[in-house]
């Protein structure tokens, strides 16, 4: 029976030989791939952090509903229940006049004394509603039919801007991700083409001896794969050092920012890098071999 792994050692040895034939160029290629992947991991890290922040901010997205002040307690409870049942609402609670006042005191801080000029509490009670950001339009449409509501402060401008930022981050991330993926594939396929050119005499001899294309191509394929995996490894090490040394400082310097802890994205990034470098290596190598044909 034919052993499909009979030539594995040969393929690995050949891949090493091909690598050595153009050693300096291949080392530079590995470094280039490593740096490209490193940039990619930075983008990925930024994307994970921004996602985390957006998620936290999204949870805090709220609208304020001012209701008819003459509303009886039962009617108010009923209104609160009905609002709470609308799809896309996380939480709804009544903020009393006093609580509104206290909050403003907290916000104004040293300037809070200005409130002493009012004889009575100038703030109204309202319903504070935490919502899912993308459900804002739906919620506002539903609330239109509620007769006891006087006014809704929907923070639309802020929410729209936030959604715009999220969209930009997503699109920019995707574009950079694609650009870097394509760059790496081009580099890999070029390296393979170069390797095939450097070994053209050997390839021709093997063809004359009747070697199948797969037998001839596999060492080049493996070389491309090794280059990207090693490049991915270099990127992983650089990124890990940066996270351990640099990110910790940023994290401590910005305690008010809801940054995730560095350890939270070590495994996602390393897993992604391993899968992505293998995938790019396979696609880039296939592309390089196909373009030679």
């Amino acid at each position: 029976m034919r052993n499909p792994f009979k030539n594995t050692a040969y393929y690995i040895k050949e891949a090493k030989t091909i690598f050595k034939v153009d050693l300096s160029s291949n080392i530079l290629s590995i470094l280039s791939i490593g740096l490209i992947f490193f940039i990619l991991t930075l983008i990925l890290t930024g994307w994970l952090i921004s996602n985390n922040i957006v998620e936290i901010i999204e949870k805090e997205t709220e609208i304020s509903i001012y209701y008819n002040e003459g509303l009886e307690k039962d009617s108010l409870d009923n209104l609160l229940t009905k609002i709470g049942n609308i799809q896309g609402i996380r939480d709804a609670k009544i903020v009393s006049e006093d609580e509104s006042y206290d909050r403003m005191v907290d916000i104004l801080g040293m300037e809070a004394k200005i409130l002493n000029h009012f004889e009575n509490n100038p703030f109204s009670s309202f319903i504070e509603v935490k919502i899912e950001m993308e459900s804002l339009d739906h919620i506002l449409n539903e609330l239109e039919y509620f007769q006891d509501i006087d006014y809704i402060r929907d923070n639309r401008q802020v929410i729209d801007r936030l959604q715009g930022i999220i969209s930009i981050i997503e699109v920019l991330g995707l574009i950079l991700f694609l650009a870097i993926g394509i760059c790496t594939m081009i580099i890999i396929s070029h390296i393979i083409r170069q390797g095939i050119y450097n070994n053209r005499d050997e390839i021709y001899t093997l063809k004359l001896l009747g070697a199948p294309d797969g037998f001839i191509q596999l060492p080049f394929f493996m070389e491309g794969l090794f280059l990207t995996i090693i490049g991915g490894g270099i990127a992983g090490v650089l990124w890990f050092i940066l996270i351990k040394l640099g990110y910790g400082n940023i994290y401590n310097l910005l305690p008010f920012m809801p940054l995730p802890h560095g350890d939270e994205f070590v495994w996602p990034v390393i897993t992604f890098l391993t899968i992505f470098s293998t995938f790019v290596g396979i696609i880039g190598s296939r592309f390089g071999l196909k373009s030679i044909k």
Partner: peptide
């Protein structure tokens, strides 16, 4: 390719 596999070529430049 099948024919070539059944041949034993000795090239002028040996290859």
């Amino acid at each position: 390719r099948n024919i070539r596999q059944q041949m034993g070529p000795v090239f002028q430049d040996f290859k």
